[in-house]
Computed example of a mutant assay.
Amino acid sequence: MNAIHHSAEADRTLRDLETRIEALARACDRLRNENNMLRQQNEQLLTERSILTERGEQARIKVESMINRLKSMEQAV
């Protein structure tokens, strides 16, 4: 009877361990998916930042050009 008790306890322990391992595997999958999503978002944000930086630079150049034209018109008067 004692061997049967140990066997049942070992089976229970193995089932508990299996349940925990399955939960960890699901958590790993969820975290892997979340990590991939965050990497994609990061790439999109970096691309958007690059575009906005370039637009800002173009706007700065245009404003500087307008200022220089206004100064030259002012000097011509």
Rank of each mutant, 00 (worst) to 15 (best):
residue 21 I to F: 09
residue 49 R to E: 01
residue 23 A to S: 09
residue 46 L to G: 10
residue 30 R to D: 14
residue 49 R to K: 12
residue 35 N to C: 07
residue 40 Q to K: 11
residue 49 R to N: 12
residue 47 T to W: 13
residue 23 A to L: 05
residue 47 T to K: 15
residue 34 E to T: 06
residue 51 I to S: 05
residue 27 A to L: 07
residue 30 R to F: 09
residue 47 T to G: 05
residue 40 Q to M: 10
residue 39 R to Y: 07
residue 35 N to A: 13
residue 39 R to P: 01
residue 30 R to L: 12
residue 51 I to Q: 05
residue 33 N to H: 13
residue 22 E to S: 10
residue 46 L to K: 14
residue 43 E to M: 08
residue 30 R to M: 12
residue 33 N to Q: 15
residue 43 E to Y: 01
residue 40 Q to E: 13
residue 26 R to W: 00
residue 41 Q to A: 10
residue 31 L to A: 13
residue 36 N to D: 07
residue 39 R to I: 00
residue 30 R to W: 04
residue 46 L to M: 14
residue 37 M to T: 03
residue 40 Q to T: 08
residue 32 R to A: 11
residue 25 A to M: 11
residue 26 R to F: 00
residue 45 L to R: 04
residue 36 N to E: 06
residue 45 L to M: 08
residue 25 A to Q: 14
residue 29 D to C: 05
residue 32 R to K: 09
residue 48 E to H: 02
residue 43 E to A: 11
residue 37 M to C: 13
residue 39 R to Q: 13
residue 38 L to A: 09
residue 26 R to V: 01
residue 20 R to S: 05
residue 39 R to S: 10
residue 22 E to W: 04
residue 36 N to L: 04
residue 49 R to S: 11
residue 20 R to I: 00
residue 48 E to T: 08
residue 31 L to T: 00
residue 32 R to I: 05
residue 22 E to N: 11
residue 47 T to D: 14
residue 49 R to P: 01
residue 37 M to P: 07
residue 45 L to K: 04
residue 40 Q to Y: 03
residue 27 A to N: 10
residue 25 A to D: 15
residue 51 I to N: 07
residue 29 D to R: 02
residue 34 E to I: 01
residue 22 E to R: 03
residue 21 I to T: 11
residue 28 C to F: 06
residue 40 Q to S: 12
residue 50 S to Y: 09
residue 21 I to K: 01
residue 45 L to C: 00
residue 21 I to S: 08
residue 48 E to F: 04
residue 49 R to M: 11
residue 24 L to A: 10
residue 42 N to P: 05
residue 47 T to Q: 14
residue 24 L to E: 15
residue 50 S to M: 11
residue 24 L to G: 09
residue 32 R to F: 07
